[in-house]
Amino acid sequence: DENEERIRAFALYKGIDPEKARELWERGEINKDDEEKAWREYK
């Protein structure tokens, strides 16, 4: 689903483990601007 892809995109963008990215996502600790930037680059 799209959230999974967004988490993966963010992990790649930040160079972090996707599981770590998922934890940040679930806790609401992902910066929305960074997340959008990562998503645009990923697509």
Rank of each mutant, 00 (worst) to 15 (best):
K20V: 14
I16K: 00
D17A: 13
I7H: 01
E19A: 13
A9W: 11
E5Y: 06
K37F: 09
K37L: 11
E29F: 07
R8T: 11
Y42S: 04
Y42T: 03
L12Q: 13
I30S: 02
E19Q: 12
R22S: 04
K37H: 10
E36M: 07
L12Y: 11
E41P: 03
E29R: 04
E5P: 02
N31H: 10
A38F: 12
D34W: 05
D17I: 04
K32W: 15
A21K: 00
G15M: 03
D33H: 08
E26F: 11
E23T: 06
D33E: 14
A21L: 02
R40N: 13
A11H: 01
A21I: 05
E41I: 11
R22T: 03
K14D: 01
D17G: 07
E23R: 06
L12E: 09
E4D: 12
R8E: 05
R27T: 08
Y13Q: 03
E2M: 14
W39N: 02
E2R: 10
R40F: 13
D1N: 13
E2K: 09
A21T: 01
F10V: 12
E2H: 11
E5D: 11
E26A: 13
R27D: 05
I30N: 02
W25Y: 14
A38G: 05
A38P: 02
E2L: 13
A11R: 00
E4W: 13
R6P: 01
R8G: 04
R6I: 08
E29M: 12
E36W: 06
E4P: 03
R6Q: 04
D17R: 07
G28Q: 04
I7W: 11
D33L: 09
L12N: 08
W39A: 03
D34Y: 03
P18D: 10
A21Y: 02
E4S: 09
N3E: 14
E19R: 09
P18N: 11
K43W: 13
G15E: 04
I7R: 00
A9Y: 08
D33N: 08
I7P: 00
F10M: 08
K43L: 14
I30A: 02
I16C: 06
E23G: 04
R8I: 15
N31Y: 05
N31F: 06
P18K: 11
K37G: 06
E23H: 06
K14A: 14
R22W: 07
D34P: 01
E29K: 06
K14C: 15
K43P: 05
E23F: 06
R6N: 04
L24T: 01
K37Y: 08
R22I: 04
R22F: 07
E29I: 05
L12I: 14
I30D: 01
A21F: 02
I7Q: 01
A9R: 07
N31S: 15
K20Y: 13
E4F: 08
G28V: 01
L12F: 10
R6A: 06
G15S: 06
R22M: 05
D17C: 14
A38H: 03
D17V: 06
K37S: 10
I30F: 12
R27C: 09
K43M: 14
L24S: 03
L12P: 00
W25M: 08
Y42K: 03
W25F: 13
D1S: 12
K20E: 14
K43E: 09
A9Q: 06
I16T: 01
R27E: 05
K32T: 10
G15C: 13
Y42R: 02
D17L: 11
Y13S: 03
R6L: 11
D34H: 02
K37W: 08
F10L: 14
E19I: 11
E29H: 06
A9M: 05
N31P: 12
A21E: 00
E35I: 15
E2G: 10
A11G: 03
A38W: 10
R27P: 00
W39T: 01
P18W: 14
E41Q: 13
A9S: 05
I16V: 05
A21D: 00
E29N: 05
R6W: 11
G15Q: 08
K14L: 15
R8L: 15
E23N: 05
R6Y: 07
R40Y: 14
E26M: 13
N3A: 14
I16N: 00
P18Q: 13
E29G: 07
E26Q: 11
A38N: 04
W39I: 04
E2F: 13
K43A: 10
Y42P: 02
A38L: 04
W25K: 03
E26G: 07
K20C: 15
K43R: 12
E19G: 09
E41T: 07
E26D: 11
E19F: 07
E23M: 07
E2N: 12
E23K: 06
I30Q: 02
K14E: 04
A11V: 01
E26K: 10
E23D: 10
E35M: 15
E41F: 12
G15I: 01
D34G: 02
W25H: 05
A9F: 08
R6F: 15
E41G: 05
E19C: 14
D1R: 11
A9P: 00
I16M: 09
Y42C: 07
E36H: 04
K37V: 10
E26S: 09
I16D: 00
R27W: 05
I16Q: 00
E4R: 05
D33I: 08
L24M: 15
A38S: 12
W25R: 02
G28T: 02
G15P: 00
E23S: 06
F10P: 01
D17H: 10
E35G: 06
A9T: 02
F10G: 00
W25V: 04
W25C: 07
R27V: 04
L12D: 07
A21M: 04
K37E: 12
I16R: 00
Y13E: 04
I7S: 00
E4A: 09
E26T: 09
N31T: 14
E41H: 11
E23V: 08
P18M: 15
R22H: 06
E19S: 11
D33K: 07
E23A: 08
D33Q: 10
R27F: 05
R6K: 10
R40A: 14
R8W: 15
L24E: 03
